[in-house]
């Protein structure tokens, strides 16, 4: 008799606690869902904040980094003397490796017509160091910039580059388009 009573009491405590916890979880979930984003949320670099510090090449969990240089051709001046391609001081425009800014020679220069050249990034070689983006922004149009490529990125819960980015340029973004492109000359609102 007594045992049965204890048992009932225990069961009662357990079910009221359970009920309370379901309510609590429901509350947390409901509140969280109110602010939830429907789309996929991914890490991306704001190219207007990035200062090409070089950590994107070294701090990604992947090696080589999931960060690559992206070239917005519609912004490019097709310069012969490309600030993203050539080292400062090497104005002889030769494609010799020692003149190239890119440490892995990942940029292909192709003659289009006098005096214009097209620059294409070879993603397999690019390590995301940002040297070209820095040069292009300093001397050219800034049409080269760094982005996290989402076919490579494994979408860490906390991007380990974001943690060390000195410019606080890496944020989670939502929406159908997982890139922050520099298409025109205005900062994204």
């Amino acid at each position: 008799m007594e045992r049965k009573k204890t048992k009932n009491r225990r069961e009662f405590i357990r079910s009221s606690m359970r009920f309370g916890m379901v309510l609590a979880l429901g509350g947390v979930g409901g509140l969280a869902f109110r602010n939830a984003a429907a789309g996929k949320s991914v890490w991306q670099i704001d190219p207007f904040k990035c200062t090409w510090c070089g950590r994107c090449a070294t701090h990604c969990v992947l090696n080589p980094s999931a960060v690559k240089c992206v070239h917005a051709y519609e912004m490019c001046g097709y310069c012969d003397l490309c600030g993203g391609y050539l080292k400062v001081g090497h104005s002889d425009r030769s494609t010799a490796a020692e003149n190239q800014l890119c440490p892995t020679a990942a940029i292909n220069r192709k003659f289009i017509e006098e005096p214009y050249y097209e620059y294409v990034i070879n993603e397999d070689l690019c390590i995301g160091c940002g040297k070209c983006a820095e040069g292009c922004t300093a001397f050219g149009n800034g049409s080269m910039f760094l982005q996290i490529k989402h076919d490579i990125c494994v979408d860490c819960n906390e991007c380990s580059i974001a943690r060390v980015c000195p410019s606080d340029a890496i944020k989670r973004i939502n929406g159908p388009d997982p890139y922050l492109m520099k298409g025109d000359f205005s900062e994204p609102a």
Partner: peptide, 12 residues
């Protein structure tokens, strides 16, 4: 000359 598209694959 037509400029190429920047290749920007989505994320799964």
């Amino acid at each position: 000359y037509q400029y190429p598209d920047a290749k920007l694959p989505g994320s799964g």
